[in-house]
Computed example of a mutant assay.
Amino acid sequence: MTERIVVVGAALLSEGRLLSARRSAPPELAGRWELPGGKVEPGETPERALVRELREELGVEAEPLERVPGQWPLKPGYVLRVWTARLLPGSVEPRPLEDHDELRWLAPGEIWDVDWLDADVPAVKGALLRLDAGA
């Protein structure tokens, strides 16, 4: 069995809202929304990758909380795994630094107002269960 490259995504939750990020690149994904994150580097745990990616992409300090059950195929050889996460006390407000041109905090009733990437939809549904539970 071939080794899959793990891509981590953060269902970043704050004050009952979920952070969404609009892709600015590559062209085939630009304008669609996703959970922020990125590839796990060799020798890195998924949780450490999540912290690093949120720092690089959003300029924030965050803490992974729990994994959203499941994993979802991306392009061939890649798989998405998602964790709920929260901003650490004293962290700055997220801002788009890499690969995104807009961020939106979405309340539960607004979650489907954005055009999510297909692979992110089941992960968002899983994160929404935690948001509804008061995570």
Rank of each mutant, 00 (worst) to 15 (best):
P94L: 00
E41S: 02
R86D: 01
S91M: 06
E93H: 00
R95L: 06
R86T: 13
V68L: 06
D99G: 06
E47L: 15
P69T: 12
G43P: 12
R67L: 05
W72G: 04
P73D: 15
K39D: 10
R81V: 15
L97E: 09
P69M: 11
D99W: 13
E44A: 08
E44K: 04
L58K: 13
L80P: 09
P76N: 02
D99A: 14
T84P: 06
R86V: 15
Q71R: 15
P76L: 02
P64Q: 02
R67P: 08
V82C: 14
T84H: 12
V82W: 06
V51C: 01
R48M: 06
E34V: 13
V40Y: 01
G90W: 05
L65R: 15
L35T: 09
L74T: 05
L65E: 14
R52I: 03
V82F: 07
V51H: 00
V60I: 15
L74I: 10
L54K: 05
L58P: 15
R86H: 09
V68W: 05
L97R: 15
L97I: 14
V51Y: 01
K75V: 13
E44M: 14
A62N: 02
L80T: 03
Q71L: 10
E61K: 07
L58N: 12
L88I: 03
R55G: 00
A85Y: 11
R81I: 14
R81E: 15
E57G: 12
H100Q: 09
T45D: 00
K75A: 11
P89M: 08
P36R: 06
